[in-house]
Structure formats: C-alpha cells, structure tokens
Amino acid sequence: MPFVLPREPGLPPVTWTAYAFTTLGVLPLVWRRRRPVLVLVVILLVGGVYRVAVDGPGQPLPYAGLMAFYTVALQCPGRVRAWVGAGSVGTVAASVGLSTGTARELSFTLFCAGASYALGRLQYTRQAYTAAVEDRAAQLERANRIEAEQAAARERARIAREMHDVLSHAVSIMIVQAEAGPVAVRRAPERAEAAFEAISETGREAMAQLRTMLGVLRETDGPEPREPQPGVAALPTLLERVRRGGPEVVYEESGGAAGLPAAVDTAVYRIVQEALTNVLKHARARRVSVRLHHGDGELAVTVTDDGRGPGGGHGDDGGAAGGAGGGGSGAAGGGHGLIGIGERAAAHGGTAWCGPRRDGPGFEVRAVLVTSRPEVGS
C-alpha cells in the first residue's frame, strides 16, 4: 500500500529503485518449486539489501521469504531442511539485530518462520497420504480388473465345456444312429424308424440345452424362464438314448442315495455323458457299465466298456483326466472330453482317472466327487 497511497508528509518519496527491489523480492517465487533453496537465498539477499541500502517503505513481514521457506519444508529432504533452518535462524537474528534488536521482534519473527515450516511439513504429509490412497485405489482397481478377467475366463471355459459335452454327445448319438439307419432299413425296418426317432429326439434335446446356455449369455430386458440343468435323475433317459445307438448299457446305483448339491448333481450327469460319448465315438463297445456309489461325503462314478480301449479308441480325447488332481494313465491325445471330466471332478474337491481296464479289454473312466464338507472340529 505505501506504493499506491501517498506517503505521510516529511517522508521521502518512493523511488524506482525501491520498486525494483520490491519486485525482485517477489519475482523469484515463480521458480520456487524448481529451486526452493536458491529462491529462498535470493529473496533473503534482496530483502537484506533493500533494508540496508534503499530508503523506502518495506513490508512489516517478509511474506515472500515465508513462502519460500514453506516450499523448502515441503519439497526438500531432511538434511537440506536442517542446513536451511540453521541458516535462516542466523539470518533472522542478524536482521532483528539491524532493526530493533528486541527479544519481542526476534521471538515473533522466529514464530512466523516456524509456523511456515510446520505448514510445509503438514502439506507434505497430506500429499503423501493422498498419493498413498490414490496408489491403493489404483492397485485395487487393477486387482478388480484382473479378478474380473479371470472370472470371465473361467466362465468362458465353463461354457465351452458345457457346449462341448452337449454337442459332442448329441452329434455322436446322431452319427451312430444315422450310420445304423441304412442297415436297419434293409434288415429291420422297425429299428430304422426307432433310429430316426432317436436322432430327432437327440437333436431337439441338444437344441433345448444350447438354447438354455445361450440364453444366459444373451442380454435381455427381463428374466427368461430357465430349465434346470440335468442331473442324476436324468441318467436313465440318457442311458436309454445310448442303448438305441447299439451297445448294451447297465446302470447301477448303490450306497444309499441322498440329496446331492445342484452343482455336483449336474457334474455327475456331464461326466457320465462325456464318458458315454467317448464310448460311442471311439470304443465300438458291445457292453457299457455305469456305476454310481454314494459313500461317506463323496460320490464315485465309474464308466467301463468292453471296446477297443485307449490304444484303438478314446485316444481322440486323451487318456489321463488332466487337471483332476489325481493320477491316471492311458494314451495321450488332443481332445478335451477327458480333460473336462478331470476339471469337473477337481472343481468339486475330487479326482478323476481314466485308462485301460485292469480286469479285461476295454476302457475305464472313474471320478470321485466330494458331496459334503466336513464340519469344523469334527
């Protein structure tokens, strides 16, 4: 304000030199974030020269110096802050000595410098906390994105496995029935009619199951009716459809059947379906046996045939049930059916094995699924 309002009578007028030094005392603040220590030194030197050599109005408080000191406290490391603090105390003492030399002015000036330093450190703490929170949020966002991508990959794998089971089984039965149709037309027309009915029924069921799975993927405005996934109760219908394809199928369930969790119920159906699909595609078996045994907290599924075994058939889908968490043997291959059996068993805490039968010619698929978890402390 002394540069704007007229000065009191008797005081010398403000000179351009005073204007220049006042400007030089503030202008370095433009670079305070790049060179905080240098800016503080320049401002203190300009202020000292102004008080000693220039007879002009001055600020009652060194505002520019306080801002520069605040920036040093905010941005500089501890050793630099210590050296700058010690130098600032000496500068303040010398300035007060050249001015009034009173303890009151010294304590007041030191208090202002200390407050400026404290505000700088508080701002540093706040910025560090904000940066930590933002970094944590970014990490959580990355983790959530990775988890979502992994969940999508698992869901794609599950859908691919379901579609493989449905299509592979249905197409296998339709091919077997279609190949047997011309022979039946010549030898037993009544069997040909049954074969064509089996083809039609299998196709309709496959379309219904595919429509259900695709309906889950399709975005709709409202809920659509959903049919439940097939389970153990649907096995007799599945086996009857396979019987129409030629091989004799024997079904046995033992051990006192109890209510199964829905996921396990569907997994058992899909395991049996895939095993039977492999029999129809590769084994050329005359007899197939499907056994379910309900044990203590687990369910064992065994499918055996008297066909060519892994050496001549089944090799299209591999031998060991990969990813099942258990051992296995058999011919390695490039398909996904037996791998899917192992994955289904492992998903329910169990194991799967596949390979040649030990008691005769043919192939065997065996899977054990956990149906109940033991209680804690039991």
Results as ranks from 00 to 15, higher is better:
V368A: 12
G322S: 09
G333Y: 06
E364I: 08
G337C: 06
F363A: 14
G342C: 13
G323F: 13
L369S: 11
G377Q: 11
G350L: 01
D359L: 09
S329L: 13
P356L: 13
A352C: 13
G328C: 06
V365C: 14
R366T: 09
V376E: 06
G335P: 09
G326P: 00
L338W: 09
E375R: 13
P361R: 15
P374E: 10
G337F: 08
E364R: 15
D359N: 07
A367M: 01
G349M: 04
G323M: 03
V376R: 09
T351Y: 01
R357T: 10
G327K: 08
G333E: 02
A352D: 08
A324K: 01
G333L: 11
G355K: 13
G350W: 00
F363I: 01
V376P: 03
G322P: 00
P361M: 10
L338M: 14
V368N: 08
T351H: 08
A346G: 04
V365G: 01
E375L: 15
G340R: 07
E343V: 06
P356Y: 05
G362N: 05
G355H: 09
G334K: 04
R366F: 05
G335R: 10
G333C: 11
I339D: 04
G377I: 07
T371N: 03
S372I: 02
R366N: 04
A331K: 06
V376M: 00
A345H: 10
